[in-house]
Nucleic acid binder design. Sequence first.
DNA 1: GAATGTGAATTTATTCACAGCA
DNA 2: TGCTGTGAATAAATTCACATTC
Lengths: 213, 213
Amino acid sequence: MRNVDRKDVPAVTVPRLALYLRKLRELRARGVDRVSSKDLAEAIDLNAAQIRKDFSYFGEFGTRGVGYEVDSLIDVITHSLGLHRTWNVAIIGAGLLGTALARYRGFGEQGFHLVAMFDSSATVIGASYGEGRVRSVAELEEFCAEERVDIAVVTVPASEAQATIERLVAAGVRAILNFAPVRVHTPDGVLVRQVDLSSELMALSFHLDRESD
Amino acid sequence: MRNVDRKDVPAVTVPRLALYLRKLRELRARGVDRVSSKDLAEAIDLNAAQIRKDFSYFGEFGTRGVGYEVDSLIDVITHSLGLHRTWNVAIIGAGLLGTALARYRGFGEQGFHLVAMFDSSATVIGASYGEGRVRSVAELEEFCAEERVDIAVVTVPASEAQATIERLVAAGVRAILNFAPVRVHTPDGVLVRQVDLSSELMALSFHLDRESD
DNA sequence: GAATGTGAATTTATTCACAGCA
DNA sequence: TGCTGTGAATAAATTCACATTC
C-alpha cells in the first residue's frame, strides 16, 4: 500500500534530497520559515527547476506564488529518505578510518546508531571507540542474528572487501557503505554506495594536469 | 600543443578511469599481460562498450581481435589522469578524519605527497601525523607562497568550510577534496570534489525504507 | 574468428518555458 | 504579480550493433 502513487525516483535525485534537507535545517536554525525554489537553488548552486522536479517525485508541497514552508518541507524530505526511524549501523574494519568514523558524533545525530564494530586483528578487539566496542569478525553472523544490522560501513583492506561483503549479505545486511577501493558484486536488492578517495584524488589530478598546459 | 586532438572527456569518465587503472594494476600484479574490454567489464561490473568508449576519448590503444596490453594501457591511463607526476597535498583540519587521512599510507603510494596539515586549535598545532606536522591555519597563505600546494583536502567543520576554501583559492589552490558537509562556491577553474558521508548514509536509508514496504 | 572503435539508437537527466493557482 | 508544477525540448550518458582490422 505504501507503494501506491510512488513514482520512480531517479538515482541522482536521492543524494540531492540530502543536500536540500541540510540547507533547510540550516535555514530553520536561522529562523527562516519560508523558502522558494529559487532561493534554495542559489544557496546550493543548482537550477531551480531541478529542485522543483526533485520534489515533484514525492508530491506537491509548495504554494504557487509563495514558495515552500521550511518546516513541512523538512518533514517531507525526512520521511522520503526514511529518516523518521533509526537505523542500526555496524562498522567492519577498526583501522584508522573505521575508528575515526566510529568516534565521529555527527553520525548518531541523524538517526544512525552505531551498534558494533568488527575487526580481525587481536590487537584491537575489545577496544572501544565512541559507542562501538570492537568484536572479532568471527562473531559477525552470530551478532547479526541477534541484533538487526541495517547498514554496514566497510573499512577493511581492499583484498578482504569482497569476502567481507558476501558475509554481510548472507547475514541479511541490505545496505553497505564501502570505503575499500574495489567495486564489489552484490545480488539484487543489496545497495552498495562506494566512497573512493583514490578515485577522487585522481579526478583532481586529471583536472590539474589539463589546466597546466 | 598538448591540447591538439584532446576531445572533451565526459565528467563521468574520469573517475571510471581510476577504476580501470586499479583493476589493470591488479591484473599486472597477477601476471596477466593482455585483457579485452569484455574481461575488464565483467571484473568491474560495467558494460564493455562503455569501457571502450571511455578509452576512445584518449586515443586507440587496442588491437582488434586481440584486446589491450595491460602494461601499455596502464601507462596511457596513468598519463591521462596526470599521475606521471607528483602532486603536493595539504590537509586542512586535523580532527578525527583529517588525522586518519594523514596517517593513511595508500595516499603517498599514488604520487600524492602530503606536505602540510593545518588546524586552528592550539591543542593539535605542532603534533605530527604521518608525514604531516600540524601548523596554524594563520600560516596558510605564507606556506602556500613558499611551497606549492596542488590539492587541498578540507576536513574542517561545515561552518568553516566556505571561508577556508576561499582562502585556499586566494592562495592559488585549484583542486579541493571537500569532506565538510556543505556545497561550497568556487570560481571557474577551481575543481571541488565533494565526499559527503551523510548524503551517502541517507541514500542507503532511502533504499532500506523503500525495500521494507 | 575475435575484439576494437564508433556512429546511431536509446535511455536518463537537466533545463526551458509556461499554464495555473494563491 | 510571483512562484509552483510539469509537459516539452535539450543535453548528456549509456548501450547497441556492426564495419573494420588483426
